[in-house]
Amino acid sequence: MRISELFARGEFVLTAEVGPPKGFHLDHLLHEAEEFLQDVHAINVTDCQSSVMRLSSLATCKALKDKGLNSIFQLTCRDRNRIALQSDLLSAAFFGIDNMLALTGDHTVMGDTKQAKPVFDLDSVSLLHCVKTLESGVDLAGNELDGEPPKFAKGAVVSPCSDSVDVQLAKMERKVEAGAEYFQTQAVYDSEKFIRFMEKAKQFKVPVQLGVIIPKNAGMANFMNNNIAGVSIPPEIIEELKADKEKTKAGVTGVEITARIIKECKDHCQGVHIMALGWESKVPALLEQAGLKGS
C-alpha cells in the first residue's frame, strides 16, 4: 500500500531499509525481513547502494511483496537513462509496487565498478517530475500510456545535518515542487540540528521521516564522520561507543543511542526510517526502546 495514505491519516510511519545481496539468493534477506521487520509499515530496498553492483531493488521489492511485506522501490539515476527509468517504473507498477523513492545516486567511482559510465541523464528532481508525468498518463516524450496510468507514493531524501543545509533545503523545495510527497532523511545523530532543520522544512508541508543508522562501534562512527556526506556524529556519542566495548559489540549501546535520538526528535517529524545496515535483528529492540512498538 502507498505510504502516502498512512501519512495522510496522520500515522507515524516506520520504515526500515534492506540491501540486496551480490548474487541472486534472497533467502537470508527475506528471512530477516519476515523475522525482524514485521512492525514497520514498509521496507526500503536500496538500488546498488554505494554504487556496488548487486541484485536489483525491483526484484527484491517483488520478492518482499510475495511474502506479504510492503516495499519501497528505491531508484537512482546513476545507472539508467530516462527510457530505462520509466520502463522500470512501469515494471514496478505491474508488480503492484506502489511506493518509490527518488535519488540522484552516488557517483560510480564511489563503488566497486569504477570503470562504469555514470549516467545521470535525470536527477532526483527530474525523476520525481518523470513519475508525475507517467501518473498523468503520458511518458516524458509526451506519448500516451496504454490503459490506466501508474500511481506511486513519491519519496525523496534530504540531509538535515549537512554542512550546507541551506543548499539542501533549496533542493528539498525543488523536490516538493516536482512532486515529492514524503521525505526520508540521511542519518541524524544531533537531535538539536534535526529540530532546527525541521523548523525550516515544515514550510514545505510534506511529511519527513527521521533517518537513523544504529552505530556499531566507534570505528564506524569515525569512518562515517570522515567519509559520509551529510553525517556528523558528535564526540560524546563516539565516547559512549568506546566506554563499554562488550556492550557496544552486542549492539546494546548503538540501540540505546538510536532510541534516545528517536525519542528526542519524534515530536518534530512524521515518522522514522531505520537504516540497519545488516543489524536488522536489532530493529525490534530499537522500536521497543523508542516506544514505537505497535504504533
Partner: peptide, 9 residues
C-alpha cells in the same frame, strides 16, 4: 542541472 546532490561534504 537541478541542484546539489547528497554527496557534498
Amino acid at each position: 542541472v537541478n541542484g546539489q546532490c547528497g554527496g557534498c561534504k
